[in-house]
C-alpha cells in the first residue's frame, strides 16, 4: 500500500478518534456541570406521568377502631347508594364532585369525610328530575340512608337551608361530629345559572358495618 494511502487512512482514523474523544469529553463536562439540573427537570416531567393502572383495585376498607377508611375509593368510582325514601331518591354515589361525575349521579367532595368517619360528608347533585329535583321537598326528621360498600349509615334530616353559591363557609368541613350535607342548585324550577344552593343537613342516627 502506498504511503500516501496509508497516511490517508491514518488521517481518517484520527478524525474519527478525535471526534469520539471530543464527544466523550463534552458529555463528561455536561454531566459534571448540568446533571443535577437535568435530573431535576426529568424528575418533574416524570412526576407528571400518571398511570391509570397504578390506581388500586382493592375494595374500600374501613377500620372500626380508628374510624377511618383504610383504603379510599378511586376517584370517579361508585362506592355507595344514597336513599331518601320520602322523596323517592335512590342514586349511586361517585367519589369526586366534578361536573363530569355529576352527570352520572351524586358526587362526594373528596376533601370531606366518609360516612362513619365522624366528620362533614359533603355530597352535591344536579337539580334535574333524575337526581335532586325533589330534594327541596325533604322535611326535618326524614330518613336518609347511605349504603356504602363497607356499611350502612342512617341519618335524620336536622335542618334545611338555602345558601349562596359563593359562600362555602356554610358547608364547613369539620371532624367534631358527623354531619351529612346534601345540596343542589336552587331554585329547581327556573332557567339559567343558579346562584343559590339548597342544603339538607343530616345527623347520624345509626351505623351498621359490613363484616
Amino acid at each position: 500500500m502506498p504511503n500516501k494511502l496509508k497516511h490517508l487512512l491514518k488521517e481518517i482514523a484520527e478524525q474519527f478518534a478525535i471526534s469520539f474523544f471530543f464527544c466523550c469529553l463534552l458529555i463528561v463536562a455536561i454531566y459534571f456541570t448540568c446533571s443535577n439540573t437535568f435530573e431535576k427537570y426529568i424528575n418533574i416531567i416524570n412526576m407528571m406521568s400518571v398511570s391509570e393502572t397504578e390506581a388500586s383495585n382493592l375494595p374500600v376498607a374501613f377500620d372500626i377502631v380508628s374510624k377511618r377508611l383504610e383504603r379510599n375509593p378511586n376517584y370517579g368510582t361508585v362506592w355507595g347508594t344514597l336513599k331518601i325514601e320520602s322523596v323517592g331518591i335512590d342514586l349511586p354515589i361517585y367519589q369526586g364532585d366534578d361536573l363530569k361525575l355529576l352527570k352520572k349521579g351524586v358526587g362526594h367532595f373528596a376533601g370531606s369525610y366518609f360516612p362513619g368517619e365522624g366528620g362533614s360528608i359533603i355530597m352535591p347533585a344536579h337539580n334535574t328530575k333524575k337526581f335532586f329535583r325533589h330534594l327541596p321537598e325533604v322535611k326535618v326528621g326524614d330518613e336518609i340512608v347511605i349504603e356504602a360498600t363497607y356499611g350502612t349509615f342512617t341519618y335524620n334530616v336536622s335542618k334545611t337551608e338555602i345558601i349562596d353559591y359563593q359562600d362555602p363557609s356554610k358547608l364547613p368541613v369539620q371532624e367534631e361530629h358527623e354531619v351529612l350535607m346534601l345540596y343542589t342548585c336552587y331554585p329547581v324550577n327556573t332557567v339559567g345559572l343558579k346562584t343559590k344552593r339548597f342544603v339538607v343537613f343530616g345527623e347520624l342516627v345509626g351505623a351498621e358495618y359490613a363484616s
Binding site: 471526534s19 469520539f20 464527544c23 463534552l26 458529555i27 426529568i42 416531567i45 416524570n46 407528571m48 406521568s49 400518571v50 398511570s51 391509570e52
Partner: peptide, 21 residues
C-alpha cells in the same frame, strides 16, 4: 454523536407514555 447519545439517554430517562399536563 452527541445528539444521538443525548437523545437516546434523554428518552430513556423520560416516562412520556403516561405524561399528563
Amino acid at each position: 454523536l452527541m445528539i444521538f447519545i443525548g437523545n437516546f439517554s434523554l428518552f430513556k430517562s423520560l416516562e412520556l407514555d403516561e405524561f399528563f399536563f
